[in-house]
Design a protein around this nucleic acid. Structure first.
Lengths: 119, 119
DNA sequence: CTAGAACCTGACATTGACGTCAGAGGCAAG
DNA sequence: CTTGCCTCTGACGTCAATGTCAGGTTCTAG
């Protein structure tokens, strides 16, 4: 499929796909005229990359982790595997921090509900 | 206390404190020579603001919510209260999304562990 | 009194994942 | 063949919280 269809199906902009390629996160075949063509699997790939971005990983970090996706055989993915564990831990910490923030908001909401009920 | 002490005690940079003031998130008394002075409560204030930043709220949004902190009486904090509920929901969605990302990472980790064990 | 922190304002720099625009070529349908 | 949509490269714009630097004032300890 061409870039427009991939963008739509994966729910990202065409600009983003070109950016992913520039960062080495996504490959494409080029037609004679230079247009990018992608296989079906590219959709899942892009969705997964988006998911990692959502988790706060940078392009560079995603690039480091991708060997675990593309070729999870022991030798090639050693550093990638370690990196993945690190990022998993970082994400876990981040989630815990957000939960604390949510709790703080809940406290404040309850406090305000109290005031609003009595007035 | 002066700005340096507040920065250290709240765990932020002096630059950030000046920025918060610029955004209306933090007030200060000025000495005759123009130096900022803060009461004890400023520490908690700054920590709380940091917490909201961590939750993904922008300066402008934090500003909108602060009436619920400063004066949780019904009349003044109406819009602020609504805004707080909205942000609470947004944060909750974000957390759920991050949990999905963590699950995806966990799956990938398990998959790779499998490969690494057999080889 | 003096050296060295700490503070002031103002302004430009940074970072990263994009948005957006320009100028040009490619492709399917009528 | 042409109209209109898709794609290409390249480059500059964005946003937000903060870093950083310059040039100058103020406070504090000795």
């Amino acid at each position: 499929m061409r870039i427009g269809e991939l963008a739509e199906r994966a729910g990202v902009s065409v600009r983003s796909l070109r950016y992913y390629e520039e960062q080495g996160l996504l490959q494409s075949e080029r037609s004679a005229s230079g247009q990018r063509h992608y296989p079906e699997e590219a959709v899942d790939r892009v969705v997964f990359v988006q998911r990692l971005y959502a988790g706060g990983l940078s392009s560079r970090t995603i690039l480091e982790v991708l060997p675990c996706v593309d070729n999870p055989s022991a030798d090639s993915a050693d550093a990638a595997f370690d990196r993945m564990l690190v990022e998993r831990a970082r994400l876990d910490d981040h989630i815990k921090d957000l939960l604390r923030t949510r709790d703080a908001l809940d406290e404040l909401i309850e406090l305000n509900r109290g005031f609003r009920a009595t007035v």
